[in-house]
């Protein structure tokens, strides 16, 4: 490690934090605009050109609001929960390889670290729901834990499938193996597992569920639980959760891009890698938004049934299948 390495890492983290903030702000804009289009209306138009300054106005509003701690709440945990939500999300960005060169740390256990960080949000949401002394919050906390436990398993099984293909935990390593044209992407690695697209869909479903996005937004189900764990949060307390949620969506989509869609590698070979990475990333994010505004919410037991009865058996089967195929081929 050279002397400049810590400084580089620090700069990268600052950059990542800025990216997370701006990304969340503008994903809100994209989501609102997108929802507007899906719903035959215009979305935000007033603040700035096409409402482009709307996120800044929203942030100003959220920051100027009072942070209310409800009476009887566990003050410390109530304040701690949003704080616990944000840093792991930013830390995860330090590991994500945006391109061959634009990567904070290329850990040799990058994938595991990434999942360790992204699992933090469960604890944060649970604490938020539990500490705010709100019954909707408590129901939401209970839901979010069982939901995440249920969906972590098929997700991990899918990842093990990829790991067997790649033979490495390093994210750059996994991406590098998918270099070349798009048929080298893991999504199309049909030679080693003909069910790879199914695996990808399982991963995508699990990712939606892990990030509490519709149609699996059980924790925040607004027509049942008002705002779930976030019911009692005002101002930036809510804003931080909001930002972290969008950061988690980006992380989830980034993992999908890295594991299945060839990371920064271009399918055609022009433009730098960052461009392709972000293009794939935001395409995935768009799909997530698309799904949210198209489908109604599932029922909670339906969600658990889907995981335990459908996704886990199928992912075990694909895991075994690719193990056999790798051995044979």
């Amino acid at each position: 490690m050279t002397a400049a390495e810590p400084i580089r890492l620090l700069l990268f983290l600052v950059g990542a934090a800025t990216f997370v903030g701006l990304n969340a702000a503008y994903l809100v804009w994209v989501e609102r605009k997108g929802a507007g289009r899906f719903q035959r209306r215009a979305g935000p138009t007033e603040v700035g050109y096409a409402g482009l300054l709307q996120p800044i106005a929203d942030a100003g509003k959220l920051m100027s609001k009072q942070l209310i701690v409800p009476p009887g709440a566990d003050r410390m945990l109530f304040r701690l929960a949003p704080v616990m939500m944000m840093p792991p999300a930013i830390m995860a960005f330090a590991i994500l390889p945006f391109s061959e060169y634009l990567v904070g740390i290329d850990l040799n256990v990058g994938l595991i670290a990434l999942f360790a960080f992204s699992s933090f949000n469960v604890i944060a949401v649970m604490l938020a729901g539990w500490s705010s002394r709100n019954k909707y919050g408590i129901i939401s906390a209970a839901r979010v834990v069982s939901q995440n436990v249920a969906y972590e398993i098929p997700m991990m099984l899918v990842i093990i499938t990829i790991l067997m293909l790649a033979g490495t935990l390093s994210l750059t390593g996994i991406v590098d193996q998918q270099a070349g044209a798009f048929w080298n992407w893991n999504l199309f690695a049909l030679a080693s597992n003909p069910l790879m697209p199914v695996t990808f869909i399982i991963f995508f479903v699990c990712m939606l569920s892990e990030t509490n996005r519709a149609p699996f937004d059980m924790a925040e189900a607004e027509s049942e639980l008002v705002a779930g764990a976030y019911t009692e949060y005002a101002g930036m307390g809510f804003g931080v959760f909001f930002m972290a949620e969008y950061a988690n969506i980006v992380i989830g989509c980034a993992i999908a891009v890295i594991l299945f869609l060839g990371g920064w590698h271009s399918p055609v070979g022009v433009f730098p890698g960052v461009f392709w990475f972000l293009l794939k990333l935001y395409f995935m994010v768009f799909v997530v938004i698309w799904v949210r505004w198209t489908f109604p919410r599932t029922q909670f037991y339906g969600l658990l049934n889907l995981s335990w009865k459908i996704l886990i058996p199928i992912s075990i089967f694909t895991l075994l299948l690719s193990a056999v195929m790798i051995k044979l081929v």
């Binding site: 929802a35 899906f38 719903q39 035959r40 209306r41 519709a214 149609p215 937004d217 189900a221 607004e222 027509s223 505004w293 198209t294 489908f295 109604p296 919410r297």
Partner: peptide, 16 residues
């Protein structure tokens, strides 16, 4: 009703 079930888009179509 669709709003109750978590689908927001139909409301706007219906109101159209």
């Amino acid at each position: 009703y669709l709003l109750d079930l978590g689908g927001m888009t139909p409301l706007l179509y219906a109101f159209d």
